[in-house]
Design a protein around this nucleic acid. Structure first.
Ligand SMILES: [Mn+2]
Ligand SMILES: [Mn+2]
Ligand SMILES: [Zn+2]
Ligand SMILES: [Zn+2]
Lengths: 153, 153
DNA sequence: TTATTACATTGGAATGGTTCTCACTTACTA
DNA sequence: TAGTAAGTGAGAACCATTCCAATGTAATAA
């Protein structure tokens, strides 16, 4: 379960965004902030079964959609048919395994500049008024490389 | 309908990928090569209703999934609930309107270098064996900027 | 050409993630 | 503390996509 510090932090995040503070929202956001596992709705429901035994999946969907609208959370697809969610506290992008679906965070010094440059060029070329971007890189995760006999050891 | 040149080109593409040449595959691929409208399955079905009046949507899904497996086609989501498909003949990325869903192609000199650099850095950091990437930029298209009163004229 | 056969196509049923509905509850405001 | 707009939860509904089994056909070799 989420630490006291996380509970305080997430409470403040909800207030800053003028979102009504319900136990469900608070607990879900705290879970996302303290886990980087890119969970599905089902994963979240299972993980919170102690704290919120009676939560409906509608509520989880509603909550996550609200967070997405407020740009607190991003949605990810890894090809398994369901949507994965990720608290977007600091800029990063994702490497997604085409074999097992594993999603890992990636960033590097200068990544924000790459992003900014991409957005500026895009605005110039397309005339769009840019509000965000997503980058994803696909490939085989280390475990799957071994499993498939592509990499030894 | 697709030109003779496109029909010849797509025939060769199918053969190069050792795909069995059926009228359905040939016509769908020719449609994708000669249109950059990022269609859904329904859009494709409607557009080809003259040439393939009895095609089943299963066939369109099967065909597109096969093309995706062969990296001829990429899938895109624009938030409207259905998957959009795009023949990926030359490297580009997409600007997607968050208001109306419009998807436009974007590229610029040096884009391939940006891509390559992103993939190399990702491989180094994550240990993934990289096979591809997707970049998307979100914002308001010029038409929606006007419609929403953000841009005049 | 013709026969063989593995693969593709169809259309209808099944699937399953997500949204919708509505009665009930609750968080905020004054 | 009361009033009210907003959130919750259970289940139904939705609908894009996949699955299935019967039928059709493209590729290959004799
Ligand atoms: Mn992440
Ligand atoms: Mn495109
Ligand atoms: Zn993997
Ligand atoms: Zn638009």
């Amino acid at each position: 379960m989420a630490s006291n510090a996380v509970m305080e932090e997430t409470l403040q995040v909800l207030k800053d965004h003028k979102l009504r503070v319900t136990p469900q929202r608070h607990i879900i956001l705290a879970y996302l902030v303290s886990h980087h596992n890119h969970p599905t709705v089902e994963t979240i429901r299972d993980a919170l079964s102690k704290e919120l035994p009676n939560i409906g999946s509608s509520t989880i969907y509603n909550t996550l959609n609200t967070f997405v609208d407020h740009h607190l959370v991003v949605e990810l697809q890894n090809g398994d048919g369901s949507t994965h969610y990720d608290y977007f506290g600091s800029p990063h992008y994702h490497a997604i395994c085409t074999n097992c679906g594993r999603i890992v965070d990636v960033t590097y010094p200068g990544f924000s500049d790459t992003e900014k440059s991409l957005e500026e060029k895009t605005a110039e070329i397309s005339g769009y008024m840019i509000s965000g971007n997503h980058m994803e890189v696909y490939g085989l995760c280390p475990e799957c490389q071994i499993k498939l006999g592509i990499k030894n050891d």
